[in-house]
Amino acid sequence: MPKISVIIPVYKVEQFIERCAISLFEQTLDDIEYLFIDDCSPDNSVEIIKNVLMRYETRKDSVRIISMQKNCGQAAVRRYGNSIARGDYIIHCDGDDWVDINMYYKMYECAVNNKLDIVRCKFCRTDGKLMKECINIPSNIYCDAKKMISYLLRLSDLSSTCDKLVRRELYQSVDFIYPVDNMCEDFAIVTQLFCRTDKIGYIDEVLYFYYQNKFSISHILDNTHIDNKAQQISNNVKLIGKILKTKYPGGIFDKEIEVIKLMAKNAYRPIIRREGYYEKWKTLYKEINSKIFFNEYITIKEKLSFIACYIGIYPLLTGRK
């Protein structure tokens, strides 16, 4: 049984996958299962992975390259990877990112030595030149599942599955609800993980490097894509609400849910001046429009942007273009 399974979705990452694969195969942990899930990538990503693997003879038996029958999207790929993983722990890695050479050794040792279900590390964003450490929550929060969920949903914590080493049984529980929509699917997954355990540890060190790819799908601004994005975020917000209502009845996270509902509305913000999109923005989760200013978890900046949108002068008031 491998110590860790690393799941890597592969789709249009031929420019970056070599760097990613090298950082994975160079890991100092000795017993890792690598699951590269090819989501019908139309480029040479898979061939590049195979070429890199030829340099690492000791890793060949640990690598599986699996092809989806059709392009399914990240949510389905992650779910499939989790279902077939054999490691004691599971972690994800995106094909355009890379990891510190000691990342999985340090996380695994922390998990085993402290009998933890989840271990996290610091996370860094980079454009290839500049690096910026991502937000970190107070260390005393890790022993309180409710506070962890609150920080996550008010966008004061990272929802990524790539900085979280998770005991396999959590992901493979028969009642684990996997999202079907790709946008913000990690929010639904991580919320659910935090609902299931408070045995969470933290390594105060940057071990994961997230590459901000300017050509990624998140930068597409055509109308159809934005409509789909808003709908998918909205669907995952509803799923999060369902998960929380089951675990914590009584509406204790209502204000946090308002924050992620505003996030769904804001999918329309970049094109709000196009015909018909002001109304789409205004009517999506319209019940929170009157609550924005009374929510202490929504920043002043976001409240000002909301005003600008509501009175029809966004992005002029905020200086955005």
Rank of each mutant, 00 (worst) to 15 (best):
L152Q: 00
R78L: 14
D61K: 14
M131T: 11
K129P: 03
M103W: 01
R168E: 04
P138K: 05
N140I: 10
V99T: 13
E133K: 10
T161A: 01
N102M: 11
K146T: 12
C110S: 15
M107W: 02
G81W: 03
E109Q: 15
R86P: 00
K129Q: 11
F176K: 04
S150G: 09
D96G: 04
Y89F: 13
N140G: 02
N113A: 10
K115T: 11
C184T: 12
K146C: 12
R79L: 06
R64A: 07
P179S: 03
F176I: 10
V190F: 06
G128K: 00
L193I: 06
E133N: 09
C162E: 09
I141A: 07
C134L: 12
R79W: 10
M131N: 09
Y56M: 06
I177C: 12
I91W: 03
T161Y: 05
E185R: 09
H92L: 08
D100E: 08
V190K: 07
C110F: 08
M68Q: 06
N82W: 11
L155Q: 01
C72R: 03
M148E: 05
Y80Q: 10
C93S: 03
K147H: 07
F187M: 15
Q69S: 15
A85R: 09
M131Q: 10
C93V: 10
L170P: 06
L158M: 00
Q69R: 14
L193M: 05
I66N: 02
V112Q: 11
Y171R: 09
K106I: 07
V112G: 11
S67M: 09
Y142S: 02
I65E: 02
V174Q: 13
S83L: 14
V166S: 00
R86I: 11
D186C: 09
D94I: 05
S150H: 01
L116S: 05
S83M: 13
N102T: 12
C93M: 05
A145L: 10
Y151Q: 05
